[in-house]
Amino acid sequence: MAVATPAKTMTNVEAVRSTLYDALKRDDRIVILGEDVGNRGNVFLITKGFIDEFGPERIIDTPIAEASIVGIAIGMAMEGLRPIAEIQFADFIYPAFNQIVGEAAKTRYRSNGEYTCPLVIRTPYGGGVRGALSHSVSIEALFYHVPGLTILAPSTPRDIKGLLNAAIEANDPVLFLEHKRTYRLIKDEVPDEYYTVPIGKANVSKVGHQLTVVSYGLYAHQALDAAHRLEEEDHSVEVIDLRSIRPMDRSTILESVRKTRKLLIVHEDNKFGGIGAEISAMVAEEALFDLDAPIRRLCGPDVPAMGYALPLEEEFMISTERMVDAMREMVTF
């Protein structure tokens, strides 16, 4: 990736940390609240040392009470602060469902714009880290049904910085999903300067003409690897990293599908009612007669969760091999 301005190489987790740090420096309306974000500096050490530099009034170690972590952040936002709430693991977000879906997403709407809720809720999600049933879930499909919410799931350090900045700038609530497995796995150059990546724009991470693959999060990387492998077999696959789940970039998806005439959707969250279901329906409604093959979804299995034991985790996760196989089947269909 060519970078014109000075840049640093960093991992995904470092990108989250440095973007939060710059935000705290820039704007004293920003406070961070969550479990263990202060003294310990978050379980992944994302906010390590922040409490010493910015003080306990801005880096708030909350009681273990997710509904009120989000609820209090909503009140702060309604009264002029710019809170960034953390849910320690996405699996623990369920107690806050009411506050996110019933309250944050509807504050602007129900008050007809008199009150707004500029709030970022960050949370690590996803599997492949031996996180067992309750430290591995994907939660995006539980929330993407909700107008008023913005849901971001960037996969690279560059996009993390740009989209986290955009989320912080936004005057509406944003659910910001960070795939745990990518935290230290993914490394890339990140420009030093302040920038935002537009919310609602997907990234075409590889151009191709025989098949469109739509993914996000950890699998955006594996899908790209798989596409490169097919390149060696002389197959040309286009890869789209959604980055933004709601709003979704329908025009980038449709344009690509109309060109390649085939669509594969890959995500870790289970298939039934997942993000892929909506994309498939949208493409079927808008571009059915442009397709040369049935739409295919390669998704997490329809079970309650991945297991802790290695074979139970591996069975749930989709290997790059399986992506290669699915792509090969589709390009040769």
């Binding site: 509904a67 009120s68 989000v70 609820g71 209090i72 952040a73 909503i74 009140g75 702060m76 936002a77 309604m78 009264e79 002029g80 602060l81 809170p83 009411n98 506050q99 019933g102 309250e103």
Partner: peptide
């Protein structure tokens, strides 16, 4: 649902 919002407003103050 409004009670944590009130607490957040008090925090802002």
């Amino acid at each position: 649902a409004q009670i944590p919002h009130a607490v957040g407003a008090a925090y802002a103050i």
